[in-house]
Design a protein around this nucleic acid. Sequence first.
DNA 1: GTCCAGGGCCTAC
DNA 2: GTAGGCCATGGA
Length: 233
Amino acid sequence: MTATALWGADGIRNPIARFFAVLLRRYGPQHWWPADTPFEVIVGAILTQSTAWTNVEKAIANLKRAGMLSARGLEALPEADLARLIRPSGYYNQKAKKLKVFLEYLRRRHRGSLARMFRLPASQLRGELLELHGIGEETADSILLYAGGRPAFVVDAYTRRIARRHGLIEASSSRHPASYHDIQALFERHLPRRAAVYNEFHALLVETGKRHCFRRDPQCAGCPLEPFPHRVD
DNA sequence: GTCCAGGGCCTAC
DNA sequence: GTAGGCCATGGA
């Protein structure tokens, strides 16, 4: 995937497309999501909530080592044992409960089959996932995109921060900060509606965010993205 | 010791 | 509707 293939060779008009091109050139394809199966993606999406991925890797490795990284495996595991195995990912009691809630939903609603689950229209599936305790908008979209291959742009803390600092979203009057939906709609409006594009872009935003876009350092030293505010409608 | 990470829920105003 | 507290480990 190249930016010119996506937007044509005659120059890239919108800042969002330019950001994508710059990041792809700088960091290359990110090969997300780092998981062997869609089920592993979903487990990872829950475990990575407000948690460094390195800690999630340890938890996933524990589950694999125990031979439990499957719907059947996790269902057979008492919640306390599950919590113990995922301990390195933090918030382990909360996350054990969240995983159990999802497993219950998968079994009851889709007879335990992810293939059945992903047969639902994306908007309906998103709505059902949001009903579950422990799955909010970002996790639901991560599941749709990275496990289901659906074009749902994922908005995470880095995406928000980068969009704000680089002027892609309105300098939020603190009374009306841009909502998840606003930011998602902004990106989706300016990108080809393709899962592969959303996949790569979000991964690249996280990569540059981890490197340059720190919470308490608006300097963003070394950031490859254009620093000045943009008007994006 | 302090800060932060690929959020989400709950409660109090 | 939204700000603030809570959940918790591990690396920098």
